[in-house]
Design a binder for these strands. Structure first.
Lengths: 269, 269
DNA sequence: ACCTGAACACCGTTCAAGT
DNA sequence: ACCTGAACACCGTTCAAGT
């Protein structure tokens, strides 16, 4: 169901780091984290393991490169077309393109943050292995390229908010942390339809979670049982944006109480 | 440097799922994620792989059990002593005990949230493998025990806030997402002193990150370069709590504008 | 400089056999 | 019911050899 282009019979045209990373991403998307092996990779690229090791140091580096490629595409605004125009026009389900373009309307900083955040959110839904990889990559080496890239794309919008410079780091960190936490947890949604038995769709899935929560021990889990029903009909992207808005509201409440026309609230339907 | 108790020469006293999970956690803490193998486990427990498989279905289940054990300890408030009394008395470095006890003062809901959040934060710093495992566990199966446990402990405090019941799920989710994202990214700190060459301490580590950020491409990373210096001296726990406060401020700003004496702001030094 | 592919060490898991 | 340990299939990685 993924890409139909390019099959295995292409021994011609030279191997390259780029092609290897591309194949790795496809393999991860198709077969999941455990599906990325050097044997599967050699087969798909019609070569031997030694050839891959000539271009890539080891599996960790390959995973880092795959993560970086996908994150860069997701976070680079203003490139591709056909992406979410504005976070106000809510549409269900993940989008198709890999980069959110800011076609047209010069958005407010808040909307810019929402667009970037949604771009990452959708990328993780499309590539569920990103959730784990991001956690690995970010916690292992903040000196890598992935962390600064995410940080930069959010931070540039924070700078446009009227937050004192001394708070830039803290505010941007808070936003990035929320986005990564939320997107990570919602990686399940990408796995629905892939891993789940066909016939069980998203509604059925939410229903099963809701039911499972309702059957928890009443003494240990009173709150979780109480909200179990709210799980049933909720929209993940909607909830994700509500969380962003909560943080944005906190930022304006904290940093410019007396001042300006605080924030541009999203259109509420 | 971890536990000095119990060595390998204890063939007596029966094997049990509990002892296996305990050994797994120790192995993960000591040798990292790649250090947990069935061979290392059999050696430590002085047994064969078959014995372990009698108590545990496979490695995934073992990892899930280890995660659940640590998270439960971290999130269960009111058990152990010697834990962070109140998030206001800031102390540097991770705490020793595994559960944050709420000894004494009946805290505000806000403080309760801060205590639980810090408990999770510290647990991830102490057990860096938790970051990856949490991402794996949560995104794979919200019907597991780990998600509800975290959700419940935060949610019970949210209920004590005066947030309309219809927003309980969204608000709690936002908090949980922030906590997991922030704690996950800060798992590095647990690795400092373990993985890093001795002689490079925390200050040196932050310094190296800051320097790396300062050397990024000025065209691609203007913002990241601008805040690079703020990285140098910052306190992770402090910044983590500042983020929590941002979300809490957003919650009160959004949900009870006209009403009560909005939130109890932390003492700012 | 780039690629081949056999070989190595190690891993998770199974299972007939013991008690 | 619980444990033993040899065996199996598979994995990441290496390296002498080719072009």
């Amino acid at each position: 169901m993924a890409t139909r282009t390019r099959r295995s019979q292409r021994r011609t045209d030279a191997l390259s780091r780029e092609r290897i990373v591309e194949a790795a991403v496809e393999l991860l998307d198709t077969a999941g984290e455990s599906g990325l092996t050097f044997r599967a990779l050699t087969e798909r690229l019609a070569t031997g393991p030694g050839a891959i090791y000539w271009h890539v140091a080891n599996k960790d580096e390959l995973l880092a490169a795959a993560t970086d490629a996908v994150v860069t595409a997701a976070v680079t605004v203003g490139s591709a077309a056909g992406a979410p125009q504005s976070p106000s026009d809510r549409s269900d389900g993940p989008h198709e393109s890999d980069g959110p373009g800011e076609s047209g309307t010069p958005a407010s900083p808040q909307d810019g943050i929402r667009v970037v955040a949604l771009g990452l959110f959708d990328a993780i839904v499309r590539h569920p292995w990103l959730a784990t990889q991001l956690a690995t990559q970010l916690s292992r080496s903040p000196w890598g390229t992935v962390t600064p890239r995410i940080f930069e794309s959010i931070g540039q919008r924070v700078r446009a908010l009227d937050v004192p410079e001394s708070s830039w780091f803290t505010v941007t960190s808070a936003l990035v942390h929320y986005v990564l936490g939320a997107a990570g947890q919602n990686a399940v949604n990408g796995a629905i339809g892939r891993a789940l038995p066909p016939g069980v769709d998203r509604a059925g899935f939410l229903d099963s979670v809701s039911t499972a929560w309702e059957e928890l021990d009443p003494d240990e889990f009173p709150f979780t049982r109480a909200v179990a029903d709210q799980v049933r009909g909720h929209d993940d992207r909607e909830q994700f944006l509500d969380g962003i808005d909560l943080v944005l509201a906190g930022i304006t409440a904290t940093h410019n109480r007396q001042d300006g026309p605080d924030s541009t609230p999203r259109a509420q339907e």
